[in-house]
Design a protein around this nucleic acid. Structure first.
Lengths: 350, 350
DNA sequence: ATTAATATTGAAAACCTTTACAGCATACAA
DNA sequence: TTGTATGCTGTAAAGGTTTTCAATATTAAT
């Protein structure tokens, strides 16, 4: 394995001091053109690549941002990450991905130590899937990180003592259910679990609030639901077995498109056809949602925008603490049926 | 923003030298128990987290592996990455993700400089999507990296001068088409483009070879196809418009499940129903493939195994150069129809 | 109590940069 | 010709660790 070339080697080769080499390579002014050429030439000849560890140590800056997410193999998060990393790159930062361990779904002590130990220039962390302990001020929680470096939290269920950016889950829920009610549905179930309902900005919370306020029956799946297709299928099965006849829901609001995918399949298996026997709205607008049968009506949570914007507020000089909500938008396709009022703003409203 | 605590602070607090602190914290032997306690206590009090840049610089080791992939938002690659990162973690390594820029889809000079500059302990790189120039020995190609640190290449279309691990694309193709032919199909089209057919281990190459050898007509989409659902739809459209009547293919072999997704939709739009009017086999066995209508018959390329194994061969003491092929396996679902011979090994073969 | 052996600790070098500051030329003005 | 300003370049410190080697403290043996 070849030896790494260092700045002394280049200085030697060019017959100058390391200070000059550094100046040339970092583009500082005040180097004679002839010297510049010599150094560049030497660096090229030796294939010199500066040691970024040393650079980081010396400058106390790594030009690197950390992104903390659960489940990068979930389309929502991989989209978010892609967008974040691209924006970071545009702004001159490199990005590293940290995954919150599945199962634990906790910011562990080692995680925090690692994040701080890397001397990153900032952290974007996803707040959903976290338990309340992760938001404690003390110990080795998420917020501990914010004491050492800029921190922005995405999709936190509660406002925190740092800039927060979230999709409008409450609004998404309202839009979804309003849409279903406009189509005449009353018995609307949530395809989502009971894991986090104590927080304000969650689908569960919003669903419960909405239904309670309007005196509509709430259908609660008594198990936790993480957001996979399998869980979607299980949830539909449970619902259809436990609420029959006149109590059977006529519409479903799915936790996300993956859950919807499983739900659709399960319904087909049970002989129900969409949108005739059951209407379905979902969340995320993921890449596959135009390709389901029927195509999914879904609320776009703008994972891309979330990703981009989160690094922007992270890097902004002064961005305000607390919660900023990103509006979500309804994408009407076919899974709820499409009444006249949804096909466009035609005059055929009545 | 809080100051970072360094090893001198801890040494002071504990009343020992930094050498002792280092020894205690890195778990070296030869420290008196009482001293150990003092140091640990001091470190805890001050919330000390060692600067990993300094550690890396000093040890000439970063305990970090680079993973170079195109498109992390593509399920195949995000699965691969997840598996790689989990395995790396198990083996005591951290992982950072580098994306080959879309569009260029080239290992750029900056990329290579960066990879080497980070002084990583090894690189796993994906070789598909790369052009032949990336495999050149000279300049700033992928292989240049291998001179400085261990390098393993995944899914390279050609054997390289480093350990390579690939899914068995040739076998996958053979299995897929054999499957279709066993069901009576002769006119079988590839839903895949003409980008890389000069390489040996690609779906295009394998398809062309297979069909040529058996004197079957080859259906070639004259545009490059990267692997998205949209492209799948476009490809089907082109096919159905250009080959009509007796020349119309009766079966499709899709580049991957995403392409299949688009293809299914396009066919539905054009009034064709699967598997009756058209059979479809695909590649990848991605999370959504059991949920399409009809569920996809597909070849599992084992992205997970590829990810795990790639870091294993990267980290192995002596792993042999050249190509190792990972077998792929056919997953029969409904998109080709399921003849008796596919439903199981029943005696109803004839 | 003295010596030898061993266990524990500390000083300093090495890892590779960046950058403040000092020094030396050269050019220019007086 | 001398003094001053200016432009380049080099020296050395700082950034935070690990690790070798030397020094000291402790224990065991006589």
């Amino acid at each position: 394995m070849r030896q790494y070339v260092n700045i002394f080697d280049v200085a030697n080769e060019a017959g100058v001091s390391i200070a000059t080499v550094s100046r040339v390579l970092s583009g500082s002014a005040g180097v004679r053109e002839a010297t510049r050429k010599k150094v560049l030439e030497a660096a090229r000849r030796l294939d010199y690549r500066p040691n970024m560890l040393a650079t980081g140590l010396s400058q106390r800056k790594t030009r690197t941002l950390g992104v903390v997410l659960p489940m990068i193999d979930h389309p929502f998060y991989s989209t978010l990450y892609m967008a974040a990393q691209r924006r970071a790159m545009e702004l001159g930062y490199f990005t590293v991905l940290f995954q919150i361990e599945l199962g634990s779904e906790r910011i562990t002590r080692e995680m925090v130590d690692h994040l701080i130990g890397r001397r990153l220039d900032g952290i974007v962390a996803s707040g959903d899937m976290l338990k309340s302990a992760d938001f404690d001020e003390g110990g080795s929680s998420l917020l501990e990180i914010g004491r050492y470096m800029p921190l922005a939290v995405v999709n936190s269920p509660v406002p925190l003592n740092c800039p927060c950016l979230s999709s409008d889950l409450e609004g998404a829920c309202r839009t979804a259910i309003d849409h279903l009610r406009a189509l005449g549905h009353e018995r609307i179930a949530l395809l989502g679990g009971n894991g986090y309902e104590s927080f304000a900005n969650t689908r569960e919370h919003a669903y419960l609030e909405y239904m309670r306020k309007r005196g509509l029956e709430q259908y609660i799946y008594p198990y936790t639901l993480g957001g996979t297709a399998q869980e979607g299928a299980a949830c539909v099965k449970w619902l259809l077995e436990n609420f029959t006849g006149a109590r059977r829901p006529t519409a479903l609001f799915a936790f996300n498109d993956l859950v919807a995918l499983g739900a659709i399949r399960q319904m087909r298996l049970m002989g129900l056809s969409l949108p005739h026997d059951m209407a379905l709205v979902s969340c995320d607008n993921q890449f596959f949602s135009p390709y389901t049968e029927p195509p999914l009506t879904t609320i776009d949570l703008h994972a891309q925008k979330l990703g981009r914007k989160s690094v922007e507020i992270l890097l902004a000089e002064r961005s305000k603490l607390g919660m900023e909500i990103l509006p979500s938008t309804l994408i009407v396709r076919a899974s709820c049926g499409t009444p006249a009022s949804c096909r466009g703003d035609s005059d055929a409203e009545g």
